[in-house]
Amino acid sequence: MAYSRRQKIAIVDYGMGNLFSVKLACERVGLEAFIVNKGSDFLKASALILPGVGAFGEAMDTLNKLNLIEPIRNFIDSGKPFLGICLGMQLLMSESEEFGLHKGLDIIKGRVIRFPLQDFEGGSKVPQVGWNKIFKPDYKPKDEWENSLLKGIKEREDYIYFVHSFYTIPASKEIILSLTSYAGVNYCSSLQIRNIFACQFHPERSGPTGLQIYENLAILLKTHQRVE
């Protein structure tokens, strides 16, 4: 019976960032996770996670070299759940201004820009390193999070862990799921479009609040499987 089959999460390894905390967070909520660096391995996955910490240009080069760009596109086209975390969110955009202009995966129209430079004395430090809150854009339905991986997260109350100097500006404001306030800007801290969920923060480093997001993924996958 298909229902008893364990869900497998593929975590894309392209040499950037701590994949192991992502894997351990998946395992903590009962998901089987494996780390992959070959596009052919995506086929057996019920969900794909693109994590990442590091430089945008370098990441795109590596994805290219490892021939992972088409498999990522194909996976997203398949309609199965896809998660982009931190750099993995930024890479979905059209372009980034990090160390010169770089083309992204262009799966979501939008740009990646740096936090404005502040004076060091009293200004916000860049990178943002630490805990912050998320909230809903005022033009979005109040109950939108209920149908997303953010279900159960309390806006403007729960703390989530962020580490980044750059943030995304999606061309369509409609896909923004949450905003966060830092260095004088309200920026997109998570987005959702079709089967894509992407977040600038690190759910796997955000204590019980972050694990709730992985828990929600596990629940989503169960539902998904029933539909199949």
Partner: peptide
Amino acid sequence: ARKFGSST
């Protein structure tokens, strides 16, 4: 920093 990211 280039290999693992500045924040690391």
